[in-house]
Design a protein around this nucleic acid. Structure first.
Lengths: 196, 196
DNA sequence: AAGTACATGTAAGCAGTTACATGATTGG
DNA sequence: CCAATCATGTAACTGCTTACATGTACTT
């Protein structure tokens, strides 16, 4: 249910095609909220039908077209209402910790493989998020630049600070997961004897 | 997709009715993997159809019945295969951090309300998980006791240690989220001026 | 001429949510 | 007798996944 607000956040900085948005998802918001194109294009159509955005067909070359979307006043309002609304939390559903709770049923090697996969997973996420943090600090992120271009000078600091804040939280979470899994590896060694 | 394995983990300690399992979800595994009864009962039927568990209808009072499920050899194998299989990770989709990245669009009070809600949410989870940790340490959790009753002595330490490990990870995550949101509150004060 | 990037979807299916529905048994 | 708990679901809907489908335009 956050997909449309992630899309609104992107369209708010200026007109974009579905393809543009899909690409942005792969590099910026997508680091916080993943969405495949098979979800983005239909959602844009729905948002247009609900009046949050308006699309205008543009020609491209001889026969090609693309649909450029821009946010409507209703869309702008919807975004601000979302920002102001009480956050919704999903019920906890954590496959990694569920499995960790039953590692006694695994062989030592299986336990280690699981923990190493957990570390690899979160190191991958960590890399993405740290990269994003560096791009924020270097004011180098294309989306952030477009955002700042339509932002009053006195709001620039806030805009950057909150982006930083969000990604710092993700980075810390990743570091926490990695530290936990490393402690798990030490635990396996202690309980089952070191390998080799 | 982990629901059936959470259910298998519970049924593995001994025969249970759908109602029993649903209650266990509310107090033990449910702290890691939530599932409503409207999902549990149909899933049990599916698992029975696939031969992972077998249910036997019992009479209860004059006209009442209940269906007691026990794990089959195939179910036992499926559980061990799950434990040994490479973990699946969902693509990142984090509504709280998504919203945090756009807090510059909120008023200071809205930003604070969001961060306080985040703290309240994770303090609630933290309380559950710390309670579970205390019950593990006191060897006081009814499910853990049933588990240990069917566990060889030399595996008791491992069984307890991995449960502890799992819940420690959750506790740390909750603490991390709370610390992050508190830093967010300080950031709002710095950027927007302290209230009052 | 071929490959990459641009551009936009549909269709089937699964997991989970929310709301509703019903009845039996047990304990006070 | 009444309330709590035992007991088991169905139905409609939403969000997301996976796989498939198709064609244009630009660059080398």
């Amino acid at each position: 249910m956050s997909l449309r607000y992630a899309l609104l956040a992107l369209v708010r900085v200026g007109p974009q095609s579905g393809y543009d948005l899909q690409k942005q998802f792969a590099v910026s918001v997508g680091h916080v909220w993943h969405a495949p194109d098979s979800q983005i294009y239909p959602e844009l159509r729905k948002m247009e039908a609900e009046g949050l955005i308006r699309g205008e067909e543009q020609t491209r070359g001889e026969r090609g077209t693309r649909r450029m979307y821009h946010v409507t006043p209703a869309g702008h309002r919807a975004f601000l209402e979302w920002i102001a609304s009480p956050p919704e939390y999903q019920r906890v559903r954590d496959p990694a910790h569920l499995r960790a709770a039953y590692l006694e049923a695994a062989t030592p090697d299986q336990a280690r493989a699981f923990l190493r996969a957990h570390i690899a997973q979160w190191e991958g996420e960590l890399e993405q998020w740290e990269g994003e943090l560096r791009r924020i600090d270097a004011v180098d992120n294309p989306m952030l630049l477009r955002r700042l271009a339509v932002t009053a000078d006195e709001d620039r600091e806030r805009t950057i600070a909150y982006k930083r804040f969000a990604y710092e939280g993700l980075v810390e979470r990743a570091r926490g997961e990695i530290a936990w899994a490393r402690r798990g590896l030490a635990l396996v060694d202690r309980l089952e004897g070191t390998p080799g």
